[in-house]
Design a protein around this nucleic acid. Sequence first.
RNA 1: GGCGACUUAGCCAAGUGGUAAGGCAUGGGACUGCAACUCCCUGAUCGUCGGUUCAAAUCCGUCAGUCGCCUCCA
Length: 475
Amino acid sequence: MNNTFQFYNTLTRTVETVIPHEEGKIAMYTCGPTVYHFAHIGNLRSYIMEDVLEKSLRYVGYDVKRVMNITDVGHLSSDADTGEDKMLKGAKREHKSVMEIAKFYTDAFFADCAKLNIKTPDVVEPATNCIAEFIHMIEVLLEKGCAYLAGGNVYFDTSKLKDYYVFSSQSEKELLVGVRDDVEEDANKKNKNDFVLWFTRSKFEDQALKWDSPWGVGYPGWHIECSCIGIKHLGEYMDIHCGGVDNIFPHHTNEIAQSESYLGHPWCGYWFHVNHLNDKSGKMSKSSGDFLTVSLLEEKGYDPLVYRMFCLQSHYRKPLEFSYEVMDNMSAAYGKLIKKIADLREEGEVDLAFFDHYRQKFVDALSGDLNTSMAITIVYNLLKEDVNDATKLALVKDFDQVLSLGLQAAKDKIKADQSDVDAELESYILAKIEERKAAKKAKDFARADAIRDELLEKGVALKDTREGVVWSLVN
RNA sequence: GGCGACUUAGCCAAGUGGUAAGGCAUGGGACUGCAACUCCCUGAUCGUCGGUUCAAAUCCGUCAGUCGCCUCCA
């Protein structure tokens, strides 16, 4: 068991060694998607990096339990009860019911995750499954005097906290309310940082999802779900809470406020935040019109795993700028890497001493604030080492448990590309190859080149290698 | 206005006090009938100015630029 796994803890703003509440076990929580639309590749960057974090922790020997919520209700586009519920907005847009929208985009989200080799968390819980728990938590907060009723809604009273701005040294005075044009201040709040736990007064008459509660028919505020679902599945102590940097304030600040007030003790010791993916105009956002999805990347001919590699070769705490130039760069690099690995032969005995030595290098890279870029470099270095292929292959497969770049399936991947070709086409290709071989032998190079061009037009590229002629499909 | 992050070769990027990993691209070469593949070789003093130190990309300060957050967001 490696017990020196370190990463940057937003709570303390330092790189710290993880010390779980229960030895050997990690209780990990991830803020899941709001399922009103497709996830864009910026959203997915967070999930990719969190996936690497989870797998790294498992790789060094931790028993990880990971929980993710699905936000399918109560996520207003504004906090002042004037915004529109995102789910409802999605439903209107597509003329479907809210639950149909939630189902469709939840499935789409996990389909994208699968393409990116992101493991599905151990527990996935939609918010609408936990209404009773939300209500219970809010009742307790009211009993404890941490919450109040105003204008029909239940609010969390931030003035009852000793330390609300746990993630920053911001003061309430300096905090501007309504910096964004579309945000209005809610007159019901006692303090400007208070936030809604339960809405009963929806301004949308067609609000589709409503539940009965002690305070009237309504729906939960956004923050309550993560606190509640986290506690429901991981107990009173959580080790690592993950999310995008934009969740730091107010979402995670509010989660801490609610959870610790409810539990009466510190809740989660480590906060892992992934920086944003930007394009040249700035942050990629679902709410700002056009956005890039995994499907779009596929349409443009990129393997989704190229995007995963693009994320891994950067550091999770750095802003990353997306461009097709970099994707092309990455695509070439990925193709070469896969090919190198596919060329390894499964011969010889694995050199165990070498294996352990290299495995340790890999562990060190991951343990040092998730240095995934270095982890990839280690793969490149490994391929250049003077050891037998069996050892290299064993290590690559081992590393791919964390990297999940399809490295261990490299051979199959290349074969699979060819198996997409039907038998008729294949025999045609093979016949042409024979014909060209004969032409070459007769030094009829014009004819040989013509055959090669002919196949290329049909999307088949020929290469004369030392082992003979090989063909592959091109786009 | 407040808070925070980032700035290393054409591009991505590692590096946290001792004279700059790796990848892609480029250029040159080997191989090839040609091409592709493969292999070899090829590049930066680390945004600015100043300070600390025997020694700084690495510490401190300064200016500049880019980006994010301040109740939609991963």
